[in-house]
Simulated assay, not measured.
Amino acid sequence: MSTLALWQEGPEPSPGPSAVVPPEELTRALPVHVAEAVWRGTELGKVEARVVSSGFPALDAELPGGGWPTRSLTELLLPQSAICEWRLLGPAVPSLLAEEGSTVYLVSPPKQPNAPGLAQLGVAPDRLVWIEVKGPADRLWVAEQLIKSDPCGAVLVWLPQARPEQLRRLQVHSQSCDAPVFIVRPETALRDTSAAPLRVSVTLGAGWNIDVRIRKRRGATFDGVLQLPAMPSNLDIVIPPRLRTLPAPRPARQEVPHVLGSPATNPAAAFRVAH
C-alpha cells in the first residue's frame, strides 16, 4: 500500500530576526499628500471641525484639536451633578460666547441656574436659555431638536438615564452642529458603551482644583490625571493664601494591639498594654 505524503519532511526553517521599521521609513516612500494623511496610534486623533479652547492649557494639550470639539458629542461624567460642571466649563465661556448672538442652552439641569453666578463667568442673562423638561424621553426629544437647529454658542444636556442607542442618535445629529454639545451623565455610566468620541470625568480635587481624566478620545489613550486650578476669578482676589489649599490630613493614630487580639482604642489602655 502506498502512503500519501501530506507534509514535506525535513527540518523546519528557522525564523529570521524580525526587522522593526520606523514609521518614518514606512511613510517616506508614500506621496506627500498620502503621508500627511497617515495617522499613527501614538498620536492624538485629527479633528477637522472647529474647536473651542477649554481655557486650561494643560487640558487643551490633551484634547484632539486643542479644545472642546464642535460637530461632535462630548460626555461629561460626574460623581454628583451640579458640582463640577461650571468649574470645568467656566474658563471656556469667553470663547463659547465670542460670536455675536451666541447663547448657552441648558436642558434639564438638576438645579435652577444661578443667574448672578453665571453672569460673573460671562454668561449674561440674555445669553442664557434654560429649558426645563420632565422625563427622559422628553429630554432626549428636546436635545435632538435643539442640536438639529444648529445653534450658536453651546448646548448642555443632563441625561442621567441615556441608553447607548440614544447617545448614538445624538452623535449623528451633532455632526451637523457647529456648537459644542455636552452631555452630562453620572460617573457610573462609564460601565456603558457610548458613541461620544470624547468622554471626560471630573471630580473635586485638593483645594480649589478639579481632577480631570480623559476616559475616551480620538487617538492615543491618556491614563493620567490633570489637576486643574478651578478657582472662580471673582474669588481669586479675595481668598487668602491660607484658604487656597486644604490642610494636610492628620496622620492616623497607631493603635497598640491588645494582648487578646482586639485593638485598644483608649490611649490609657494602650499605654498599660505597652508598659
Rank of each mutant, 00 (worst) to 15 (best):
M1T: 15
G10K: 05
P11Y: 11
P15L: 15
P17K: 14
A19E: 15
V20R: 14
V20K: 14
V20G: 13
V21C: 01
T27D: 12
V32H: 15
V34N: 00
V34L: 15
A37T: 02
A37M: 08
A37K: 09
W39K: 06
G41D: 03
T42A: 08
E43H: 12
G45H: 05
V47Q: 15
A49H: 10
R50I: 05
V51E: 05
S53G: 08
S54F: 00
A58R: 14
L59V: 07
D60C: 12
E75K: 03
L78T: 10
L78N: 00
Q80F: 08
Q80N: 09
C84E: 12
E85D: 10
W86D: 00
W86A: 00
R87V: 03
L88H: 05
A92P: 01
S95Q: 03
L96D: 03
L97M: 01
E99L: 07
E99N: 05
E100K: 12
V104E: 06
L106P: 04
V107Y: 05
P109H: 02
P109M: 08
P110I: 00
P116V: 04
P116R: 11
G117M: 07
L118G: 00
L118E: 06
A119Y: 04
L121H: 02
G122P: 02
V123T: 00
P125D: 10
W130L: 02
W130D: 01
V133D: 04
A137Q: 13
W141P: 13
A143I: 09
D150I: 00
P151S: 02
W158Q: 07
P164W: 11
E165A: 11
R169Q: 04
V172T: 05
Q175N: 00
C177M: 14
C177F: 01
C177Y: 03
D178R: 15
D178I: 08
R185L: 03
R185S: 12
L190T: 11
L190D: 14
D192I: 01
T193G: 07
S194A: 05
W208L: 03
D211M: 12
G219A: 03
A220V: 08
L226H: 04
Q227R: 15
L228C: 08
L228W: 12
L228S: 02
L228H: 03
P229R: 00
M231Y: 13
P232V: 00
I239K: 14
P241L: 11
P241Y: 05
R242K: 09
R244Y: 12
P247W: 06
P249V: 00
R250N: 11
A252V: 15
R253N: 10
R253C: 06
H258I: 09
H258G: 15
G261H: 01
P263N: 08
T265W: 10
A274M: 10
